[in-house]
């Protein structure tokens, strides 16, 4: 069974295209564009992996990460970043993020990270 992936990014076009590409590879992928929708989806659908953009209007990605981890600590979060801000990446990892990946992203790399995250989650729960 492939991972259940939730994509959170205010760049609608990007999130939609990426979700579709993941679905074509039999992942259960869904995209949301707002922080509130993301929180609701995490609560209702309990995804295995969340791909979370660092920069969301209105709320810092780190804050969203903290909320997700509070709802379900076993959900693995991969942060998406537009620029390699080392400090924010460090902070994200300290707050429980599983990995980070730079935009524009390499799909192979992303899929590897999603699979690893899913494996890690299965070994925990």
């Amino acid at each position: 069974m492939q991972a259940n992936v939730l994509l959170v990014d205010d760049e609608t076009e990007f999130a939609l295209a990426l979700a579709e590409r993941l679905r074509l590879r039999s992942y259960d992928a869904r995209a949301v564009f707002h922080v509130e929708d993301a929180i609701a989806a995490v609560q209702s659908a309990s995804p295995d992996v969340v791909l979370l953009d660092f920069r969301m209007p209105g709320m810092d990605g780190i804050e969203v990460l903290k909320i997700i981890k509070k709802i379900d600590p076993t959900i693995e979060v991969i942060m998406l970043t537009g620029h390699g801000d080392v400090r924010s990446v460090e902070e994200a990892i300290r707050n429980g993020a599983y990995e980070y990946i730079m935009k524009p992203l390499d799909l192979g790399e992303l899929i590897m990270k999603i699979n690893n995250a899913k494996k890690k989650r299965n070994s925990i729960s």
């Binding site: 990007f14 590409r21 537009g82 620029h83 935009k103 524009p104």
Partner: peptide, 24 residues
């Protein structure tokens, strides 16, 4: 650079995914 990288990387990411999807 940090700001610009972020701003350019976003549309680049879109191009990347759309081109990728076409390839798919």
């Amino acid at each position: 650079a940090a700001g610009v990288a972020h701003e350019i990387n976003n549309p680049l990411a879109i191009i990347n995914e759309k081109a990728g999807l076409m390839q798919d």
